[in-house]
Amino acid sequence: MGNLFDLTGKVAVVTGASSGLGADAALAYAEAGADVAVLARRAEKINGVKEEIEKLGRKSIAVACDVTNEESVKVAIQTVLDTFGHIDILMNNAGVAVRGGVDSMTEEDWDKSFNTNVKGIFFVSKYVVPQMKERGYGKIVNIASVNAVIADKNDMFIRHSYNASKSAVLGLTKGMACSYARYGITVNAIGPALFETEMTQGTLFKSEQFLQGYSAMNPAGRPGKKGELNGTVLYLSSDASSYVQGQFIIVDGGGAIV
């Protein structure tokens, strides 16, 4: 059967690729043989990721893109298509985690979560899916969160808009999966738990009390390590998952087991 995880000849697009899980995934795609377009708001950050991909012998472009702005997304995806000719894999990774409960957060905070975490997937997919349908092939991986199905128990880290927006990602994933399966496109979601990334370093990883509590409650006894999401990403982005559709794979060390 050959190497089902081989991505040679494929073109991948990763949003929110400037750091953390997105940057890790972009490099994993390149190591598996894909050429990779990295998209994020911070051009200087994604240029560094682009250079790392090129060191692996793969082609890459860094495209500044604000996933909450439709025109920015439209221009970015057209740039990718003009460069590579097609897109095989889309990883919708761009996301934000805004702290606060419904009794304390502002409308602006609420909208920030949904604009990035949900509308961002809508905008990017809107301009990627048509050419996937035309070619009869595509792999879409939406990054949700384990917090789509479980809530934060520690009052210090309540994130109601994050819970709600990541749950919405699951609904969108299922709808897209049903609609596009007939075109040879698979759409699935991943639910990471706590990983040390740029997003979490400044908040969750600063609290030793939180980390101790998290580790004590998690069957694995620790947060996720760098690279531990990549296997699931490559599985859902490759022909190894050709008959997997509309699923949500949680990568959390067992914390969501019921």
Results as ranks from 00 to 15, higher is better:
residue 109 D to E: 15
residue 149 V to I: 15
residue 187 V to T: 12
residue 180 Y to A: 07
residue 195 F to K: 09
residue 200 T to I: 14
residue 205 F to L: 08
residue 194 L to T: 12
residue 162 Y to C: 02
residue 171 G to P: 08
residue 102 V to D: 01
residue 83 T to A: 13
residue 178 C to K: 14
residue 132 M to C: 10
residue 204 L to R: 11
residue 193 A to V: 07
residue 131 Q to S: 15
residue 170 L to K: 04
residue 159 R to Y: 00
residue 216 A to D: 02
residue 224 G to W: 00
residue 217 M to Q: 03
residue 198 E to Q: 11
residue 161 S to H: 03
residue 141 V to S: 13
residue 221 G to P: 00
residue 141 V to R: 10
residue 182 R to H: 03
residue 199 M to Y: 06
residue 210 F to N: 06
residue 171 G to L: 01
residue 161 S to Q: 04
residue 134 E to T: 10
residue 123 F to T: 13
residue 104 S to M: 11
residue 200 T to H: 06
residue 227 G to N: 07
residue 221 G to C: 03
residue 205 F to I: 14
residue 131 Q to L: 05
residue 140 I to P: 04
residue 88 D to N: 14
residue 111 D to V: 13
residue 150 I to G: 07
residue 97 A to F: 01
residue 117 N to W: 05
residue 91 M to H: 12
residue 202 G to H: 12
residue 196 E to Q: 15
residue 93 N to I: 08
residue 166 K to F: 08
residue 157 F to L: 05
residue 121 I to C: 09
residue 184 G to P: 02
residue 102 V to I: 15
residue 156 M to L: 02
residue 108 E to R: 13
residue 109 D to A: 13
residue 121 I to N: 10
residue 91 M to T: 08
residue 109 D to I: 12
residue 189 A to P: 00
residue 210 F to K: 04
residue 111 D to A: 14
residue 172 L to I: 06
residue 115 N to W: 08
residue 113 S to W: 00
residue 90 L to F: 12
residue 207 S to K: 09
residue 154 N to K: 01
residue 97 A to V: 02
residue 194 L to W: 05
residue 116 T to G: 08
residue 196 E to F: 06
residue 222 R to F: 04
residue 82 D to T: 11
residue 126 K to N: 13
residue 191 G to Q: 09
residue 81 L to W: 00
residue 133 K to R: 15
residue 87 I to G: 09
residue 219 P to L: 01
residue 108 E to L: 10
residue 149 V to M: 05
residue 183 Y to C: 06
residue 155 D to R: 00
residue 100 G to Q: 09
residue 202 G to T: 14
residue 175 G to E: 12
residue 123 F to V: 10
residue 125 S to V: 15
